[in-house]
Design a protein around this nucleic acid. Structure first.
Length: 819
RNA sequence: GCGGGGGUUCCGGAGUGGUCAAACGGGAUAGCCUCAAGAGCUAUUGUGCUUAGUGCCUUCGGAGGUUCGAAUCCUCCCUCCCGCACCA
């Protein structure tokens, strides 16, 4: 068989699609909309890797499927093109980030095209395009007006490698999300924040209705971290200090307070006599490395101050400790050692009082530590005997009447810090004036362009451009200084999916008609690493923009899909150092992109991790070639009723599997369907097969369609086949089943005969019930068995049946005699 | 510690109450084809038993349970992966 140049076929159809603009989506109100999207990539100079290929083919199959099913499909691609690597390249190699980025994008686009993904390339978005980031600035100002953006001084996370502050979401295990070897340090700075906490409750509540992987939903709930409890006031030096607790029922068991060692007001509590001790302690904590801090034992020292218990009026010592988180609750905790494991450990260590206030079983062994289960109150004056839940109500009521406490809800979610001390991002549209303070740039002045001329490697590059830096105050006209921080690039990705609905709009960030036509995104695919970053921010943005009147939806992504991780052939993560990296372009060059697409979709369910397999790719390539060869050698005529049956059943089953993203199963069924084809087939049926195949292997499907079925139309925009159920005849499957079972029966007998008589039998006689004789084709049987076969009807008087086996025949199971 | 997801026949990986000794792919073995290699085609690939065949046995991390019936449902345990983690 002559070898086929799949590469030239790939290129040919990629060009045709582009020429005919088949994937550019137009307004068509008669059609249902479908919005399929993959998280837009950072255009790395390394280009496309296999994980990208995998990730982008997944939604493409669905996009192609929905398009052929009569939907108008929005399937765009863009680039998250602001960010650190470009700027670091500028520092290291002297390339301007703009140039670096543009080159990388160009390369990405070329590579993406070779995969045959049905993108609407007319809608490309690039975050670093002033026409895009202008609207980041616009939304920043809108948020500012509504109090959703504010500036405040606080201890913030700072990564020395990024040379910038980070949001809470970008700190993982005390390390920077981009630099897993770099500890984040806390710096006290005045920075811009987005008030994500305003939507904490809604963000949490709406997680329930999302069609997302449970894992991601759990991670989001965890991140938002709601906990319901009470705030209670302890009087310290005649001032009221709030303390948050989820166990207000144990209030009478408080024997000491602990204030976080990082608390900004710790100094106020430290008395002269204790200052030295506290300082030594703080020094020790500071010198402890982050990784050790996680495992560090609870430690603390007495501050010298006392608090007054709100109900008993008793004096309670205040300690400072390393186990109290400064920015959760109020950074001060009430310690109830009898009923909290951490407090217990601490009290034991320092010999502090342990007072039981919850009744526990008589045989409870206090050597086990704190008793943290439920029980009835004891040692709690008038609340004695109450159950925990009742006690909570009553105690809070008592506190409320004295204005010393109330029920409150706490969240772990923090406001989003968006300032970055970096160049390659959206300039924050603010001018600082000595007289007027932080003044917003007027909307008419947008965009605040990122200046090209800056110097890299000397701190924030924006400080090196005087023209950019020194500008008049929009309010009073006096010379002021421009904000030199840029926005977190997650700002860009928080609304790009909205912009795709109307990317060319120069007047407005979004048009209400387009947004309402296309949103929400019906299928969104991307990696799980964004669970608590991009996906939180984007959800926040949608809700905030809804309340500002820009969109009407509350959730941007109806259905989220996490693709699995693609590993190297050795089962390890693909990495250069391991040498197990497979370049998608090498693969497409060798086998064509259809083979790659089919292979990636067929190894495992797309949401599961899997390993590359070079033999698996080979095998898939053989399948593609078989289809090719079949198309070139088959007689196009009439399909047998068997093929019609298989075809129509296949349409139903394969469609169902594609809809549920069981692509691996869909491919298996597609292969089985192909295997059932015969030497003659109708163009109609083969065309339908090509349509099913086309979502996975669009190029070869297009080529064969063009060559054999219809040269005037494109299969990519043809109608998805509809099954003709009247052609489905399950008795055909049953007949095949009984044929197979008969084969295995015969083989079993042949085996036994061979064992018994020491030689192979030479002839098989079958006696089928009369209407089943047709099921047992003599040629097919002898081909399969490699032995001569005769078939008789049981009522055939002339049949050869020396041992009278014929009588054993049953429906679906002919009798057998071998010699 | 908390939360989420797994553990299936040599390997990868389907399968969520009977149609399951368990799809499909890989690998392996045998045969056909060929001068040969490759490709292609066909068959076999849990164990043992039984019998000239539709049967039985053991098996889906382990142990129990529910059920007429379990890889599939429940309970407990072991184990792996992922995320969060001194959050009061």
């Amino acid at each position: 068989m002559k070898s086929v140049n799949f590469n030239s076929i790939d290129r040919k159809w990629q060009k045709e699609w582009e020429k005919a603009k088949v994937f550019e989506v137009k307004e068509d109100s008669k059609k249902l909309k479908y919005y399929a999207l993959a998280m837009y990539p950072y255009p790395s100079a390394n280009g496309l890797h296999m994980g990208h290929a995998f990730q982008y083919v997944i939604p493409d199959i669905l996009a192609r499927f929905m398009r052929m099913n009569g939907c108008s499909v929005l399937h765009p691609m863009g680039f998250d093109s602001f960010g650190l690597p470009a700027e670091n390249a500028a520092i290291k190699e002297g390339v301007h980030p703009q140039k670096y980025t543009d080159t990388a994008i160009k390369r990405f686009v070329t590579q993406l095209r070779t995969l045959g993904i049905s993108y609407d390339w007319s809608r490309v978005i690039q975050s670093h395009d002033p026409e895009y980031y202008k609207w980041n600035q616009y939304f920043f100002l809108e948020f500012l007006k509504k109090g959703l953006v504010y500036r405040k001084a606080s201890g913030v996370n700072y990564c020395v490698k990024c040379d910038s502050v980070l949001a809470n979401e970008q700190v993982h295990d005390g390390k920077c999300w981009r630099h897993k070897d770099t500890n984040v340090i806390i710096k006290n700075l005045e920075q811009w924040f987005v008030k994500t906490t305003k939507y904490a409750e809604e963000l949490l509540k709406d997680v329930d209705v999302l069609d997302w992987p449970e894992r991601i939903k759990a991670m989001q709930r965890n991140w938002i971290g709601k906990s319901e409890g009470a705030e209670v006031m302890f009087s310290i030096n005649n001032e009221k200090w709030p303390v948050f607790t989820t166990r207000i029922d144990t209030l009478f068991g408080v024997t000491f307070l602990v204030i976080s060692a990082q608390h900004s007001r710790l100094g106020e509590l430290v008395t002269k006599e204790n200052k030295k001790n506290v300082d030594t302690f703080l020094k020790k904590i500071k010198s402890t490395k982050q990784e050790d801090a996680d495992k560090m034992e609870k430690e603390g020292v007495f501050t010298g101050s006392y608090a007054i218990h709100p109900l008993t009026g008793k004096k309670i010592p205040i300690w400072t400790g390393n186990f109290v988180v400064a920015d959760y609750g109020s950074g001060v905790v009430m310690a109830v050692p009898a009923h909290d494991a951490r407090d217990f450990e601490f009290a034991k260590k320092y010999g502090l009082e342990i007072k039981q206030v919850i009744g526990c079983p008589k045989d409870y062994d206090w050597k086990n530590g704190a008793y943290t289960d439920w029980g009835n109150l004891v040692n709690s004056s008038e609340f004695n005997g109450l159950k925990n839940d009742e006690a909570k109500q009553h105690i809070v009521k008592a506190l409320e009447s004295k204005k010393l406490g109330r029920f409150v809800t706490q969240y772990k979610l923090r406001d989003w810090l968006i300032s970055r001390q970096r160049y390659w991002g959206t300039p924050i549209p603010i001018i600082y004036c000595d007289d007027c303070g932080a003044v917003p740039v007027s909307g008419k002045e947008l965009p605040v362009l990122l200046p090209q001329k800056v110097e890299f490697g000397k701190g924030n590059p924006l400080l090196t451009n005087d023209k950019f830096l020194n500008v008049k105050c929009p309010k009073c006209g006096k010379i002021g200084k421009r904000e030199t921080d840029t926005m977190d690039t997650f700002m860009d990705s928080s609304w790009y999916y909205l912009r795709f609905t109307d990317p060319g709009n120069t007047k407005r960030p979004l048009s209400p008609e387009d947004v309402s036509r296309w949103m929400p995104v019906d299928f969104y695919s991307g990696g799980a690493e964004h669970a608590c970053m991009h996906l939180i921010y984007a959800r926040f943005f949608t809700k905030a923009l809804r309340d500002l009147g820009y969109v009407t939806i509350s959730e941007p992504f109806t259905r989220l899909f996490n693709q699995g991780m693609l590993h190297g052939e050795d089962g390890a993560v693909m990495s250069k150092s391991r040498g197990n990296v497979i370049d998608p372009l090498d693969t497409t060059k060798k086998y064509g992109s259809d083979t790659l697409r089919l292979f990636l979709m067929s190894v495992a369910s797309p949401d599961k991790d899997f390993s590359w397999s070079s033999t698996g790719v080979e095998s898939m390539h053989r399948f593609v070639q078989k289809v090719w060869n079949y198309a070139h050698s088959v007689n196009f005529g009439k399909s047998s009723s068997r093929v019609e049956h298989k075809m129509n059943k296949g349409i139903i089953e394969i469609s169902k599997e594609i809809k549920s993203i069981n692509y691996n199963i869909a491919v298996i069924k597609l292969r089985a369907l192909f295997d059932s084809f015969e030497e003659e087939i109708s163009k109609y049926d083969f065309g339908n097969f090509l349509k099913l195949l086309s979502v996975f292997a669009p190029h070869i499907a297009e080529e064969l369609w063009n060559k054999f079925i219809d040269s005037k139309t494109l299969i990519s925009i043809s109608n998805w086949p509809v099954a003709d159920e009247s052609k489905i005849n399950d008795s055909i499957d049953k007949a095949e089943e009984s044929f197979e079972k008969t084969i295995s029966d015969i083989q079993n007998i042949l085996k036994i005969v061979k064992e018994k008589e020491g030689k192979m039998a030479s002839h098989v006689y079958l006696y089928a019930i009369p209407n089943e004789v047709v099921l047992f084709n003599i040629d097919a049987l002898s081909k399969r068995l490699g032995i001569e076969v005769s078939v008789f009807a049981v009522n055939d008087k002339m049949k050869f049946d020396p041992e009278n086996k014929g009588g054993k025949a049953k429906p679906g199971r002919p009798a057998i005699y071998v010699v």
